[in-house]
């Protein structure tokens, strides 16, 4: 059971124009986890998902679904996988129930009205089952896209930006749904722009930039790194250099010597702040103001996508 449910090896996509949308990505997805793929627009998130789902052809590399090659054994792979694409693409004139039943049948599953009804009820779509798609609001269409993806009972679900352009209430609904799916044993891979979403939902986080997966980390471990705090001191008088006595705090002098920054572990019992302030008082270094700041996933993310790396 420890074998990854999805194993991506050296997956690469280069277009004829020379654009390299994916640069040999390696990634393992564990059974039953929620994995969040974070990255700015054009980073390759959708390309990665599309290749796994069979919509885009890979230039190189392989995907194993439960150890089986996704191209040689495409029926097995595709039956296991459900996809909710980013774009709201629907058949305008089809009623909700028909379009969801169509998806189930397309994937070769026998009719199961009770199951389809359950999905529609879970997504609060049951009352709208006879409404044609073009009469639904954007949020409702998004729910139908999810219902379609779940119709064939996949155990791996890809959600490409599931909450883009969705109001707060629906976003909370989606999060609850994703958790319920995970409880049922569905493995979920979601892409998102919202860092809070990754923080809220994911077991692990992957960050992708310019077609490269630059970080894959347990969310909690990442949060530990994020648990680092900074103390900013605005000095009364500018300093030319940090006095040697203060070396043990590894301070940084910024803004032409007017600001001191001390980085510490916010979760540690001893932060070192009182002793630092005492030592500064002894040296006669006064300050006008102080503030502490927690680096958020957002800071790390912004830092990473601008080319920085986590140590």
């Amino acid at each position: 059971m420890n074998e990854p449910i999805l194993s991506i090896r050296g997956l690469r996509k280069a277009y004829k124009s020379g654009t390299e949308a994916l640069k040999a990505v390696d990634l393992d997805i564990h059974r039953g986890e929620i994995f969040a793929l974070l990255g700015p627009n054009g980073a390759g998130k959708t390309t990665l998902i599309s290749i796994v789902c069979g919509i885009v052809t890979a230039t190189d590399g392989v995907v194993l679904v439960d150890g089986r090659n996704w191209r040689d054994d495409y029926r097995h792979a595709r039956t296991r996988i459900g996809l909710v694409p980013q774009e709201l693409t629907t058949d305008a004139f089809e009623p909700v129930l028909n379009t969801v039943s169509f998806s189930r049948e397309l994937f070769g599953k026998p009719k199961n009205s009770a199951y389809v009804e359950q999905i529609l009820r879970d997504l609060t779509l049951w009352d709208k089952r006879h409404t044609i798609m073009k009469e639904l609001s954007g949020g409702m269409k998004r729910r139908v896209m999810i219902a379609k993806a779940l119709a064939h009972e996949p155990d791996i679900l890809f959600l490409d930006e599931p909450t883009a352009g969705v109001d707060v209430e629906l976003r909370k609904d989606m999060w609850a749904l994703v958790r319920r799916l995970r409880e049922r044993g569905v493995t979920i891979i979601l892409t998102t722009h919202y860092i809070e979403e990754a923080e809220e939902m994911a077991d692990r986080v992957g960050i992708i930039r310019l077609g490269e997966l630059i970080l894959v980390e347990e969310k909690n471990a990442l949060m530990q790194k994020l648990g680092r705090k900074e103390l900013h001191l605005e000095l009364a008088e500018p300093l030319t250099a940090v006095p040697a006595v203060l070396d043990e705090w590894d301070l940084k002098l910024n803004d032409g010597g007017t600001h001191l920054t001390y980085t510490f572990d916010g979760k540690a019992e001893r932060t070192g702040i009182p002793s630092l302030l005492a030592a500064m008082r002894d040296l006669g270094i006064g300050f006008k103001d102080l503030e502490t700041k927690t680096s958020s996933l957002e800071d790390i993310f912004v830092d990473l996508i601008h080319g920085g790396r986590i140590a």
């Binding site: 789902c53 495409y74 097995h76 792979a77 996809l83 774009e87 693409t89 629907t90 397309l106 994937f107």
Partner: peptide, 13 residues
Amino acid sequence: FTGTIYEILSAPL
């Protein structure tokens, strides 16, 4: 044209 082809392409067909 509408983009629903994604479903056909991702189906076990």
